[in-house]
C-alpha cells in the first residue's frame, strides 16, 4: 500500500515537473550559460536533479556496504545492489543529458578539460566496475562481502578524484548558480519540483528493484522445494 502511494506520487510529480519545465519555467538570459538556442537551458531542470540523485544513490551504496560488513544481513546487500544499479542509470543519464546540452550550448558533446564532466565520468566508471565485481562472484555471501568492500573503497575515491581533477584543471564552463531568489522564483519552483520528482523516482526505482530481488529469492526457494 505504502509502495503504491509512493509510485503514484512519483508518477504525478514527474508529470507535473515535465509540465512545469515545458510550459512554465523561465529561461534566464545569460550569455554564458545559454550559447546557441537559449531554449536549451530547459534541459538543466532535468540535468541537475538527475546528477544529484546519482550522487545520493551512490551514498546509499556506501552506507549500506558499511552496514552489510557490520551486520552481515543480506538485506543491506540487496539495498546496495539496487541503489548501485539505479545510480549507474542516473549517472549515465547525467552524462547523456549533459552531452546533449553541451552540443547545443558549447558546440561539442564533450569538453575534455571541464571539471564536472570528468568527475561525473569517473563516478560512472567506478560504479560500472562495482557492478562488474558483483558479476564475477557466484556465491551470494562472498559476493555481498567483496562488493561491500569495493563499495566503500570506490565511494572514498570520489571526493579525491574531484579534488585532483580540480587541481589538474580548475576551469569549468558549467554555469555557476547565482540565483536571485526573488526574481527567479518560477525557476526555483520548477527546479525544486524537479528535485522532488527525481528523488522520488530514484527512491521508487530502488524500492522496486529491492522487491524484484526478493521475488527472485522466493522463486529460487520454490525451485529448491520442487526439486526435493
Amino acid at each position: 500500500m505504502l509502495k503504491k502511494i509512493l509510485y503514484s506520487l512519483t508518477a504525478v510529480l514527474i508529470l507535473v515537473s515535465i509540465y512545469l519545465v515545458f510550459f512554465y519555467a523561465p529561461i534566464p538570459v545569460d550569455p554564458k550559460s545559454a550559447g546557441g538556442d537559449p531554449e536549451n537551458f530547459k534541459i538543466f531542470y532535468f540535468h541537475l536533479p538527475i546528477a544529484i540523485s546519482a550522487y545520493l544513490a551512490f551514498a546509499i551504496v556506501f552506507v549500506s556496504s558499511i552496514m552489510y560488513l557490520k551486520t552481515k544481513k543480506q538485506e543491506w546487500d540487496i539495498v546496495a545492489l539496487s541503489s548501485a544499479e539505479v545510480g549507474v542509470v542516473f549517472a549515465f543519464l547525467t552524462l547523456a543529458t549533459g552531452s546533449i546540452w553541451a552540443r547545443s550550448a558549447w558546440g561539442a558533446y564533450w569538453v575534455t578539460w571541464d571539471v564536472r564532466l570528468n568527475t561525473s565520468l569517473v563516478l560512472f566508471l567506478i560504479y560500472i566496475s562495482y557492478l562488474m565485481v558483483r558479476q564475477a562472484v557466484d556465491e551470494p555471501e562472498k559476493r555481498a562481502r567483496l562488493s561491500a568492500v569495493f563499495g566503500i573503497v570506490g565511494f572514498l575515491g570520489v571526493p579525491l578524484s574531484f579534488m585532483s581533477i580540480r587541481l589538474w584543471n580548475k576551469t569549468t564552463i558549467h554555469p555557476v548558480a547565482e540565483l536571485n531568489y526573488s526574481t527567479f522564483s518560477p525557476l526555483l519552483t520548477t527546479l525544486i519540483t524537479n528535485f522532488a520528482a527525481f528523488f522520488l523516482l530514484m527512491a521508487s526505482l530502488i524500492i522496486f528493484r529491492i522487491g524484484v530481488e526478493h521475488l527472485k529469492e522466493k522463486g529460487n526457494e520454490m525451485k529448491r522445494k520442487n526439486s526435493l
Partner: peptide
C-alpha cells in the same frame, strides 16, 4: 578482493584504474 572472483587477473585492472584516477 579479485583473487576470490572468477575472472581474477582480468578484473583487477578494470576495477583498480577508476579508483586510482586521483
Amino acid at each position: 578482493l579479485t583473487v576470490n572472483t572468477r575472472t581474477r587477473e582480468i578484473l583487477l585492472p578494470v576495477i583498480l584504474f577508476p579508483v586510482l584516477i586521483p
